[in-house]
Design a protein around this nucleic acid. Structure first.
Lengths: 341, 341
DNA sequence: GCTAAGGGCTCACGTTACGTGAGGGTCAAG
DNA sequence: CTTGACCCTCACGTAACGTGAGCCCTTAGC
């Protein structure tokens, strides 16, 4: 059973214009059109709309919703679960605000004038009730697709800080464990979307105040980064030979900040169904090989061993937003451009 | 104790930019500035901000909030009371949505696929939870300052329709009672703001579909209007002489649709602190006298009797948004223009 | 078959409520 | 005196649609 745009709008309490807009920005495209060109929405579309609305009600901008929905999808059951948690949390905020208002009412009824702090406290609670995430939370972390990640994130930051304070080095095993957990959390928190990762970095560079409040100080970030490199090199060491490991140690972390942007671009092209033989995609794939060769060298045998490590050790890719589809895309682009790989 | 804009923003969870914006549009002006030009907000400002936020959370646009707050103010206790009612209503919506989501979750957990209607129902409940008023409610009636008015309004429309169906005429006492209640409700619903009344009329003229759904058919509106005229003439009859009543009967209702616009303009000028001797205000005042004389004639004795009736019978002014301050303003403008009154 | 009403299409300008950045002044602590 | 945080005004830009125009499509009733 397919719905026209007006029917869907009516049924959901949205407007036709909003649905047009979602189509125009690629957020929710109807799965088919009638012979007359009418948009026709089916069950899968409605399910996707449910995801969209759930994220919208968290306060996420549409562009971010699109980004979040471009990665691997969580089961709908999880989406629904999180909505229930959201409602429960908002019920708690509502109870607090209500209590506050009842108190205010009592004061006013008794002919007392509430003081400034009373009004300000009330206003604050009103704002908290209105928005699921504070502007700060929305900005501190683009980790909105899973609100459960926030407390986990804080706990991890605390754990990393504690490790630093007791003098741990990035090579310590527990530091490495923390780093792996960090990457896993980043992956989960960003829906495996590198655009969010880039934004996190930009935010950290530009806003010292927010940086301090989130706990993501440059020192902590560097520490985690080094620990992550160290952890991954330890994994590679199980696959590579000593002279190969020497090169890895020298080069592995050198251009790691260039990867997220490239990955984001490639994922965009893949999502836009740009053919792998498109010159732009080919250029990106070549750039990919440059970055790869910067730490892997040119020996095909080394490449094969590294690939084996990547295939067998999920932790090497955790948080990097590189999946098999993307790898296939890069391979196809390279094959069509005649580049060696 | 005065707050700077940043302090207020932080305390309330708003942004400095929003407060700048509210200042710029005249919605919330700081009661003072420091010598350096810093905005300084005091208790009265914060109380006003509370009113603004309460209305904002009903979904009212800022322009409408400004209009609503330009009239006589309801006690803060009533504002708070209505907020409590809002929270309670939203709690009911939350419970419905939660129940729906729990059911959906159970289906998904059991490996069943919810059907299209399930998803659509859920999406509808999500929208209802998100917004206090539906777009239709917001548009049907600009009676947002008191959500309790909506059900009362519906009941009144029903009562008027019933009276019409049993053949009542506008001169029947019960029809007149309904009309007086109508005007009272319009006054309360619009915060005694004629701009809303004008919008109600425009909406009724332009949107037949909405008209039908709201029950405000042209026939019903005419009936109420005639009943209101009849009710008011009955009140005037207690103060005027027979020949004066003859004139009133002939002319009283003739230009009654011109009054709301004039009143709105005068109230705007008064709110903007335009001096009463300003030529524009004087022109408005003269227009006021024209309209007045159209039903009252030129006899000062008649005028005095009509004024006495207005002073003693609140029902003659109910819903008209004319208060003592406005009358004083008009009088002052007339005095400064040397016009007879 | 025709007509009318309701619904659809695309296009494009406009609105609302700020967000963001620029350039410069103010305030308080070290 | 310097520095960092905060304030000012100005002004362009943004996100998420709202609104209207001109035209096509669908369906029910005559």
């Amino acid at each position: 059973m397919l719905l026209t745009v007006g029917e869907l709008a009516r049924r959901c309490g949205l407007t036709v214009r909003a649905l047009h807009h979602y189509d125009a920005i690629g957020l929710l495209r109807p799965s088919s059109r009638s012979a007359a060109g009418y948009r026709l929405y089916g069950q899968a579309d409605v399910e996707r709309l449910h995801r969209i609305q759930a994220l919208r009600q968290l306060g996420l901008p549409l562009a971010d919703i699109g980004a979040a929905l471009s990665g691997p999808q969580r089961p709908l059951a999880e989406v629904v679960e999180r909505q229930i948690a959201q409602i429960d949390r908002q019920a708690a905020e509502a109870a607090r605000l209500r209590e506050r208002l009842v108190r205010l009412r009592a004061q006013l009824a008794a002919g007392q004038s509430p003081d400034l702090a009373d009004w300000l406290d009330t206003l604050e609670l009103m704002t908290m009730y209105e928005k699921y995430f504070t502007p700060e939370e929305l900005k501190t972390l683009p980790l909105h697709t899973d609100p459960d990640v926030l407390p986990e994130w804080s706990a991890l930051v605390t754990a990393v800080r504690a490790a630093m304070e007791r003098g741990a080095t990035p090579d310590d095993p527990d530091a490495q464990l923390l780093a792996l957990r960090w990457m896993d959390l980043v992956g989960r928190g960003t829906g495996d979307n590198p655009a969010f990762l880039m934004r996190l970095r930009a935010m950290n560079e530009n806003e010292p105040g927010l940086r301090e409040r989130s706990g993501l100080t440059p020192g902590l970030e560097r520490f985690v980064e080094q620990a992550m490199i160290s952890a991954r090199l330890a994994i590679f060491a199980r696959y590579l030979q000593p002279h190969e490991m020497e090169r890895m140690r020298a080069h592995y972390g050198k251009q790691m900040h260039a990867w997220p942007e490239l990955i984001a671009e490639l994922r965009g092209a893949l999502a836009d169904r740009v053919p792998a033989n498109d010159p732009r995609v080919q250029a990106m794939a070549r750039r990919w090989m440059e970055l790869f060769r910067a730490y892997a060298g040119d020996d095909p045998a080394t490449h094969a061993r590294i690939r084996e490590a990547y295939a067998k050790e999920p932790e090497l890719r955790s948080g990097s937003a590189v999946d098999d589809a993307l790898l296939g895309y890069v391979r196809e682009a390279l094959a069509s451009s005649g580049a060696r790989h």
